[in-house]
């Protein structure tokens, strides 16, 4: 960090002025503007426009799309997506925290390999990872056979097409994104605060609840955002494990573009997803700056 800043100051002396700034940042900014800002801005604009007679968009201002999104039918889908995403995030936190804690408290040379094992599946194809759960949760699948074998049910039960299947699939897909930031927060904390709490007479549980957990809160926040955001707008997992019903808003958006051909309404729906995402990111940024300010003051 210190090295970098010194480098930047020296860079000006060696002439890293605006021509090279344009050269370095120009292509990226151009691609970002044309292929990210413009399309996302377009969603915002088209959510206020009317649907064309043959699909597509007609340039007539309307608030109908948002009014329609407030129809109880659609509010229910949005609400159920938020609930599924929140449940997935909560379970991921409960499962992920102990795992991250264990990895972060191993000797240094063990940490990276253990962490790589957690992250590796995340970098593989999401379709295929979801497909694996179709195979497992099938009526004749291994999970059902295990349930029958253990005598928990008499006959195979329908697992696919349920919310449980969706939450399981989403948890499987995004658990690594919870463990990663938790790990770095716990590792950065080190043993000193825990040790100090113990020396001052705190019980292990007390030390965890009153020292470790509050101090790793930024990691908890980051993990929750990383899991919640891709889960909320997910299309693949509810589509493949949800049995074709529009349970989550991602399916609803997709169907507006491919089946119903009502693009402006699809845009309005995705604005709702985007709005929730932005709110979460802002809250997370707030928490991070506050933590940083507190840390700076303490130092």
């Amino acid at each position: 960090m210190r090295l970098g800043r010194k480098g930047a100051r020296r860079g000006r002396a060696t002439g890293t002025g605006w021509p090279s700034r344009a050269l370095f940042l120009g292509p990226g900014l151009l691609a970002w503007t044309l292929l990210f800002a413009a399309p996302v801005g377009l969603i915002l604009v088209s959510s206020f426009l009317s649907r064309g007679t043959f699909g597509g968009i007609e340039y007539r201002f309307t608030l109908d799309n948002f009014a329609r999104a407030l129809d109880p039918l659609y509010v229910r889908v949005l609400w159920s997506s938020i609930r599924i995403a929140a449940l997935t995030t909560g379970v991921a936190l409960l499962v992920g925290y102990p795992a991250a804690y264990f990895i972060a408290t191993r000797p240094a040379r063990w940490r990276l390999p253990l962490l790589v094992l957690v992250v590796l599946p995340f970098w593989t194809n999401l379709l295929i990872r979801t497909y694996a759960w179709i195979v497992l949760l099938n009526r004749e699948g291994l999970v059902n056979r295990a349930l029958v074998g253990l005598g928990l049910t008499e006959r195979p039960i329908a697992l696919l097409g349920t919310r449980v299947a969706i939450v399981l699939g989403l948890l499987y897909a995004y658990l690594p994104l919870m463990i990663l930031p938790l790990f770095s927060a716990i590792e950065r904390l080190g043993v000193a605060p825990r040790q100090a709490a113990a020396d001052l007479g705190a019980s292990p549980a007390g030390a965890f609840l009153r020292v470790t957990l509050p101090l790793t809160l930024p990691g908890v926040m980051a993990g929750c955002v990383f899991v919640f955001v891709p889960t909320l707008g997910n299309f693949i997992v509810p589509d493949l494990l949800g049995g074709g019903k529009a349970i989550m808003v991602g399916n609803l958006i997709q169907s507006q573009f491919f089946q119903a051909r009502d693009w402006p309404f699809g845009a309005a729906l995705s604005i709702s997803v985007l709005a929730v995402t932005v709110v979460l990111l802002v809250v997370q940024a707030r928490v991070l700056t506050r933590e940083r300010r507190l840390a700076a003051r303490a130092a």
Binding site: A38, P39, I43, P230
Partner: peptide, 23 residues
């Protein structure tokens, strides 16, 4: 701001790009 494309849900980027290309 520049790192937003990695954060925004895929489906939002997908429909944005589809609308953009079509317009």
């Amino acid at each position: 701001v520049l790192f937003l494309p990695a954060v925004v849900p895929d489906i939002v980027l997908a429909i944005g790009l589809l609308s953009f290309f079509s317009i």
